[in-house]
């Protein structure tokens, strides 16, 4: 599914290197977690994969089913099946949530040469998916993320994910700012989307999200590299002992 090789990234405007050779391979249907201290480059990795401006790839590659992602426009990456659930979802005043969703779904369909969904079918589908995430009709009408609480924003990201049906989902600190109930809702939403053909990369600071979304593989990232890879037990180790031990161990 997703294969990242020797990825080096610096900031475009400054001489600041952020990723120093990231290697990562995620198979179809797998859930990988990346944990790491602040500033380790976790969020940068998610932005670079989804095509945000401001970063310069100095070496390496990232392919989705063999297609080079790093040369594509962000919208083409989305159409190819990549989705990023933002750590800080962006507000778009005046644009209804429903309009936004429908524009996005149809844009992807169009770029894949598929027919657009009819308004009636779309409405039915959104309502169904929104219900499981406890997103009510009123929230679907409100402008995208404007005045949403932290939990609402994250649930909205998962709703977008459910509607767009990506094959490779990246969750960038989706647990930040969530209380226990909201975390449960979001995790249930994600778990409902797990399938053989869909993979996840869950970026998080804390182990607690991984209690809900059980990963197959856990990676520890520090200073722009993946320094250790293991099973779910690695997350527990971080939870109990912090990052210091692992960092010392690796040197």
């Amino acid at each position: 599914m997703l294969e990242i090789k020797n990825l080096h990234v610096k900031l475009e405007e400054e001489d600041k290197v952020i990723l120093r050779g990231v290697d990562l391979k995620i198979g179809a249907g797998e859930v990988h977690a990346i944990m790491g201290p602040n500033g380790s480059g976790k969020s940068t990795l998610s932005y670079v994969l989804s095509g945000r401006d401001g970063y310069e790839v100095t070496a390496g590659s990232a392919t989705l089913d063999g297609a080079e992602l790093l040369e594509m426009e962000p919208e083409d990456r989305a159409a190819a099946g990549l989705f990023l659930a933002f750590q800080y979802p962006v507000e778009i005043p005046g644009v209804g949530n429903m309009t936004f969703l429908r524009t996005a779904v149809n844009a992807q369909k169009k770029s894949r040469g598929e027919p657009e969904v009819s308004a009636a079918d779309f409405l039915k589908l959104v309502r169904e998916k929104a219900k499981t995430l406890k997103i009510d009709a009123e929230m679907l009408k409100r402008p995208v993320n404007v005045g949403f609480s932290g939990g609402e924003k994250k649930r909205n990201e998962i709703l977008q994910m459910a509607m767009l049906e990506p094959r490779m989902c990246i969750l960038d600190e989706t647990d930040s700012g969530l209380d226990v109930d909201a975390m449960k809702l979001v995790s249930d939403g994600v778990n409902a989307l797990r399938s053989e053909g869909r993979s996840f990369l869950v970026i998080t600071h804390y182990q607690r999200l991984l209690d809900h979304i059980k990963p197959d593989v856990v990676h520890i990232m520090a200073a722009g590299r993946i320094i250790k890879t293991g099973g779910p037990e690695l997350a527990l180790e971080v939870e109990n002992n912090g990052y210091a031990d692992i960092l010392n161990e690796v040197g």
């Binding site: 426009e73 919208e75 159409a79 990023l84 962006v90 507000e91 778009i92 992807q108 770029s111 767009l164």
Partner: peptide
Amino acid sequence: DDQLFYCRSRGMDEEE
């Protein structure tokens, strides 16, 4: 730019 990137990451082209 953040708004545009958000839209594009959902599949819309820049003009859309």
